[in-house]
């Protein structure tokens, strides 16, 4: 569904994303992990048109969408959420979600009905008339998710929707995301909360210094020495192996 080949984003002398290649298959949940500053959000931004890639290509649903503006990419079926939540602060939750729903219908009543259905799906039906500015962190994260879903995407890019949530909130959100996948939406998520990655993703990519350094089923990269070193520093893999033997 999504094929990324040799994608690079360069800021001055820094290769924030360095010839990254990856695939997301239709109907799966894929994960993107990596240490802070690895370039995960930059990669998402380059995929969704918020940043123009300097090298490489992005193919999505059979079309080359490299460098297209965000609104066209969204209309083609790929939508992102923001790590730092970006609510329409003075609008109600319903109005926030309706903005997404209006992508496919000019009808107010229809958009409003869709907003209600999606609010139920992500568990914020009680909050529909609340102003977005008054939501908790967990509420805002759900709102990001709901708004993106309202555009009826084929591929949903989630940028750390679990960050800042407490464990019970995370436990609540995991089935929501699984439900989204079962409804036919492919999911690609950036996540630091390993519990979430392990229980959700089927395929995980690890990004470090802009490069994809490992890939596989979630437990596989977690045991990969290269990945351990990327997270914990040079020599860490050896020390862990040594303590394991001792």
């Amino acid at each position: 569904m999504l094929e990324v080949r040799g994608l690079s984003k360069i800021f001055g002398g820094l290769r924030a994303v360095d010839s990254a290649s990856l695939d997301v298959a239709e109907g799966t949940i894929a994960g993107l992990i990596g240490p802070n500053g690895a370039g995960k959000t930059t990669l998402f931004a380059a995929l969704t048109g918020f940043l123009a890639p300097d090298e490489g290509s992005v193919r999505f649903r059979g079309e080359d969408i490299t460098g297209r503006p965000p609104h066209l990419i969204c209309r083609h079926g790929m939508v992102r959420t923001f790590q730092v939540t970006q609510p329409f602060a003075h609008l109600s939750v319903r109005e926030n979600i309706m903005v997404g729903a209006y992508l496919h219908t000019p009808e107010r009543a229809l958009a409003s009905a869709r907003a209600e259905a999606i609010a139920r799906q992500v568990g914020m039906a009680d909050l529909l008339e609340r102003t977005a500015a008054g939501l908790t962190v967990a509420g805002r994260k759900r709102l990001e998710l709901a708004r993106a879903l309202a555009t009826q995407p084929k591929l949903l890019l989630l940028d750390e929707v679990m960050a800042g949530l407490n464990p019970p909130e995370i436990d609540e959100l995991i089935p929501v995301i699984q439900g989204i996948r079962s409804s036919g939406v492919t999911v690609f998520l950036i996540e630091h909360v390993m519990q979430a990655v392990m229980s959700l993703a089927e395929n995980v990519y690890v990004l470090s210094y802009g490069k994809i350094i490992a890939q596989g089923a979630p437990r596989q990269p977690a045991a990969d020495p290269v990945v351990i070193e990327a997270y914990l520093g040079h020599g860490a893999a050896q020390r862990i192996a040594a303590t394991a033997h001792a």
């Binding site: 918020f50 939508v79 329409f88 602060a89 309706m98 000019p106 107010r108 958009a111 309202a150």
Partner: peptide, 21 residues
């Protein structure tokens, strides 16, 4: 209207508005 909703979205947060198509 939809046009008005889109304007409100742009007023509140232009990046989020772009992300939503």
């Amino acid at each position: 209207s939809r046009f008005g909703a889109r304007l409100a979205a742009i007023r509140e947060n232009e990046d989020a508005a772009r992300a939503l198509g």
